[in-house]
Simulated scan of single mutants.
Amino acid sequence: MPQPTAAAAAEAELTEAPPDITTMRDAVNRLLDPDAVPEALPPAPGELETLTIQLRGHLDLLMPEVEQAAQRLPKDDIPRYCALACLGEARGKLRAEPSPTPHGSLAYARRLARVLNALCDHYEQLSRR
C-alpha cells in the first residue's frame, strides 16, 4: 500500500474542520457561568454525567490541536511554555477521578470545564500567531 505524500498529508490537514470553540465554550459556561442563566440549577446527575463526558471529549479533540500549535513555536517562547503547561494540567485532570463526596462529580466537572476554557484561550491565541 503506498504511503501518503507530504502534499496529501498537508491537504488533509487543511480540509479538517477546526475545533468548534463556540460549542466547547457553551459546555464550559453551563458549569462555570451562573450569570448566563441565573435561575439555572446545577445539572441533574444524569445530565452532569453527560456533560462530563462531553467535556472529556472536547479535551480529547482540542489537546492535540493546542500541542501541535505550541510545538511550532520556538522553544523559548512564553506562549508555548504556557500552552504546554496547560496541556499537562489537562492530562492530570483527565487522569483524576471525582471524589466520592456528595458534590464530588460536580466539582470534577467544573475542574474539567476550567481547564477546557484555558485550552480554548490558548488555541485562539496560538491560532492568531
Rank of each mutant, 00 (worst) to 15 (best):
P2S: 11
P2W: 03
P4H: 07
P4L: 13
A7T: 11
A8C: 06
A12D: 09
A12C: 10
A12R: 12
E13K: 11
E13Q: 15
E13F: 07
T15Q: 09
A17G: 02
A17F: 09
D20W: 03
I21V: 13
T23W: 04
T23A: 15
T23G: 09
M24E: 04
D26Y: 09
L31Y: 00
L32M: 15
P34N: 11
A36H: 14
P38L: 07
L41S: 12
P42M: 14
P43W: 13
P43R: 11
A44I: 02
G46T: 10
E47R: 12
E47A: 15
L48T: 04
L51C: 04
Q54K: 09
R56N: 02
G57K: 01
H58P: 05
L61M: 06
L61W: 08
P64Y: 00
P64A: 07
P64C: 07
P64N: 05
P64E: 04
E65K: 14
Q71N: 07
K75A: 14
K75G: 07
D76H: 06
D76E: 10
D76Q: 08
P79M: 05
R80P: 03
Y81Q: 08
C82Y: 08
A85I: 04
A85M: 10
G88N: 15
E89Q: 06
A90D: 07
A90Q: 12
A90K: 07
A90G: 11
R91F: 09
G92L: 11
K93F: 12
P100G: 15
P100D: 15
P100E: 13
T101R: 15
P102S: 09
H103V: 07
Y108P: 00
A109V: 02
L112V: 01
A113C: 03
N117A: 01
A118F: 13
L119Y: 05
L119D: 00
L119Q: 02
C120L: 02
D121P: 12
L126D: 07
L126K: 04
S127P: 03
S127F: 07
R129Y: 14
